[in-house]
Amino acid sequence: DTAALEAQQSTWNAGRGELQAKLAALETATVAAESALAAADRTLANAERSLAEARQQLDTMGDENHRVQIQLTEAAASRRSIVERVEAEWHRPLAMLLDGLVLLDLDIDTLEAESSRIVAALEGIGPVNPLAVEEHAEESKRLDFLTSQRDDLVSARQSLIQAIREIDGTARQMFLETFNAVQANFLRVFTTLFGGGECDLRLANADDPLESEIEIHAAPRGKRTQRIHLLSSGERTLVAVSLLFSIYLTKPSPFCLMDEVDAPLDDANVGRFTRLLEEFKVTTQFLVITHNPRTMQSADAVYGVTMQEPGVSTIVGVRLGEREREHA
Results as ranks from 00 to 15, higher is better:
residue 4 A to E: 15
residue 4 A to I: 12
residue 5 L to M: 12
residue 6 E to S: 09
residue 10 S to L: 12
residue 11 T to N: 09
residue 18 E to C: 02
residue 18 E to I: 00
residue 19 L to V: 05
residue 20 Q to I: 02
residue 25 A to E: 12
residue 25 A to F: 03
residue 27 E to Y: 05
residue 27 E to D: 10
residue 28 T to I: 02
residue 30 T to S: 08
residue 32 A to I: 09
residue 33 A to F: 13
residue 36 A to Q: 14
residue 37 L to G: 03
residue 40 A to P: 00
residue 47 A to I: 00
residue 56 Q to A: 15
residue 63 D to I: 04
residue 64 E to W: 07
residue 69 Q to W: 10
residue 74 E to Q: 15
residue 74 E to N: 14
residue 75 A to T: 13
residue 76 A to G: 11
residue 76 A to F: 06
residue 77 A to Y: 05
residue 78 S to N: 15
residue 84 E to P: 04
residue 87 E to H: 05
residue 89 E to N: 10
residue 90 W to Y: 13
residue 93 P to G: 08
residue 97 L to G: 10
residue 98 L to P: 01
residue 103 L to A: 11
residue 104 L to C: 13
residue 104 L to E: 15
residue 104 L to T: 09
residue 107 D to I: 03
residue 108 I to A: 15
residue 109 D to Q: 12
residue 110 T to V: 12
residue 113 A to D: 14
residue 116 S to C: 08
residue 117 R to C: 12
residue 123 E to Y: 07
residue 123 E to V: 06
residue 134 E to P: 01
residue 135 E to L: 12
residue 138 E to M: 08
residue 138 E to R: 08
residue 138 E to W: 06
residue 146 L to M: 15
residue 146 L to N: 09
residue 147 T to A: 14
residue 150 R to K: 14
residue 151 D to C: 07
residue 152 D to G: 12
residue 152 D to A: 15
residue 165 R to M: 07
residue 168 D to C: 08
residue 170 T to A: 14
residue 171 A to H: 09
residue 172 R to V: 04
residue 174 M to A: 15
residue 176 L to H: 01
residue 178 T to D: 13
residue 178 T to S: 15
residue 179 F to G: 04
residue 184 A to E: 02
residue 185 N to G: 05
residue 189 V to Y: 03
residue 195 G to Y: 03
residue 195 G to I: 00
residue 195 G to Q: 07
residue 197 G to C: 04
residue 202 R to N: 08
residue 205 N to W: 03
residue 211 E to C: 03
residue 212 S to V: 00
residue 215 E to M: 04
residue 219 A to C: 06
residue 221 R to E: 15
residue 222 G to Y: 05
residue 222 G to H: 06
residue 223 K to D: 11
residue 224 R to Y: 07
residue 224 R to H: 09
residue 232 S to N: 10
residue 237 T to G: 00
residue 238 L to F: 01
residue 239 V to P: 02
residue 240 A to G: 06
residue 240 A to N: 04
residue 242 S to T: 00
residue 242 S to E: 00
residue 246 S to P: 02
residue 250 T to Q: 06
residue 254 P to Q: 02
residue 257 L to Y: 08
residue 262 D to G: 00
residue 263 A to I: 04
residue 266 D to P: 07
residue 269 N to V: 03
residue 273 F to V: 02
residue 280 F to D: 00
residue 280 F to L: 14
residue 281 K to L: 00
residue 283 T to C: 07
residue 283 T to N: 13
residue 287 L to N: 04
residue 288 V to K: 01
residue 288 V to G: 02
residue 288 V to M: 05
residue 291 H to W: 04
residue 297 Q to K: 10
residue 297 Q to P: 05
residue 301 A to M: 14
residue 305 V to D: 03
residue 306 T to V: 11
residue 306 T to W: 01
residue 307 M to G: 07
residue 311 G to A: 02
residue 312 V to E: 11
residue 315 I to F: 03
residue 319 R to L: 08
residue 320 L to G: 02
residue 320 L to I: 13
residue 320 L to A: 02
residue 323 R to I: 15
residue 323 R to W: 11
residue 323 R to H: 10
residue 325 R to M: 09
residue 326 E to Q: 11
residue 328 A to Q: 13
